[in-house]
Design a protein around this nucleic acid. Structure first.
Lengths: 231, 231
DNA sequence: CGGACACTTCGGCTAAGACCGAACCATGTC
DNA sequence: GACATGGTTCGGTCTTAGCCGAAGTGTCCG
């Protein structure tokens, strides 16, 4: 029954405002330096360093040394999922009238990154477009890859090497439920590869200091052509 | 961006061992008294009272006065869902070798209540049996009720008045992902009604001090007959 | 090698909050 | 009304942990 203690430990890690800020900042899926995270959380560097050590020790963050920088990122999809869920609960439990449909949340609801893949209306529409195009299919309540046929061609045409994604250890396709749309969208290795590729080809752009992404005019056009999707 | 602060607040509520114990105790879906919760958490009554006030104030618990007792319960499914998710994360993040497939978790994996409905292998098998029998169908990755035909007859035969469930404000059918089975099972008003009915008719029994339930020999037989399900 | 930069560790301050015993309120019982 | 029972409020203690400045470690650059 010490599972209860572990829940408390994870809860406590998320339960500090400074640490929560850091986790939220990392929800974009980017890896950030200690200095940047300290700035975002509004605390001094030594304080941030302590918090980061706790988060790494508690398994919520992973760190990669790179020269004299240390890049922190979420330790895995389970962490991102838990943060999303807590966020959802927080919204339900502390209904803040001013947050409701505030114009500034609009971009976030429209398109954002959810850890390492696309969410919001764009994420949902993308998943549905891919089902329409027979790249994905729904199976047993989950999304799954259609193994052969034109689907792989489409992805290859986008510059995504499906065969190479196979070699990753993580599952190719995972289903993630969206908290704004309450509908499934695409996660997993493929979801992550698509974000990377969309960024590279300039279909979408990250907004600064935020999880929101914007769809460029080019992206608008190509998504309409390829998937019949307009966001 | 004060959403971050709200996450921290919810996290902090779950982040205390005593409060986490209380939340876990309430995950069975039962309503418990302050005294009982104090005992489960291993703290004195005044301390527990303070924690409970915080949890109610924070919207995680609801309380009902009944004579000189006060019955506390989880405020809603969103709370239960968040606790489940945190539990899942805790297991991933603090891998405890002794907890792994310990014989004593076996009953929990087999059948348990998840807030107000059935989970574990029984929960998943039940959902699948109901799909098989055309009581439910899968739609867009979610479970949904089949409106007419023999499905409603089956439920009525079990003593569940589907029409009456309509009048509840909550959704009839909701889909909940199981953290041990990683497959969807049935929640919502119907899921709750089924637990109630199974308990009344003695198909399942609650285990003391635990979320686990056991399937009685009667339940075994009837479930096999009605749904072709054996657990 | 010396200095700039990124970050961590140390030391000390301070505030928050978990905890309990005792007193207090409310409800039901004799 | 007296008394037991379930709960909350109050007052006080004590630990935990967040916070920062200063000093220390490691890395890159000239």
């Amino acid at each position: 029954m010490s599972e209860t203690l572990d829940i408390a430990r994870v809860g406590a890690l998320m339960g500090d405002p400074s640490r929560a800020s850091m986790l939220m900042a990392l929800m974009s899926g980017e890896a950030l330096t200690a200095t940047e995270l300290a700035y975002r959380a509004g605390i001094a560097l030594p304080t941030a360093s302590g918090h980061l050590a706790q988060l790494v020790d508690g398994g919520l963050l992973a760190v990669a040394k790179q020269g004299r920088h240390r890049y922190y990122r979420l330790a895995g999809p389970a962490v991102a999922h838990a943060v999303e869920t807590m966020s959802e609960l927080a919204i339900e439990v502390f209904p803040s009238p001013r947050r409701r449909v505030m114009p500034e949340d609009a971009p976030l609801r429209r398109a954002r990154t959810c850890y390492d893949h696309l969410a919001g209306r764009l994420g949902v529409a993308l998943a549905e477009g891919l089902v329409q195009r027979r790249v994905l299919r729904r199976a047993d309540g989950e999304l799954a890859l259609v193994r052969r046929g034109s689907g792989e061609e489409l992805l290859n045409a986008w510059g995504i090497d499906v065969a190479e994604l196979e070699s990753e250890r993580r599952p190719m396709v995972r289903t993630c439920i969206d908290w704004t749309e309450r509908r499934p969208h695409l996660a997993g290795a493929l979801g992550a590869a698509i974000v990377d590729r969309f960024l590279e080809t300039g279909w979408i752009r990250r907004r600064r200091d935020d999880r929101a992404v914007s769809v460029t005019p080019l992206g608008q056009r190509r998504l309409r052509e390829e998937l019949g999707v307009s966001v």
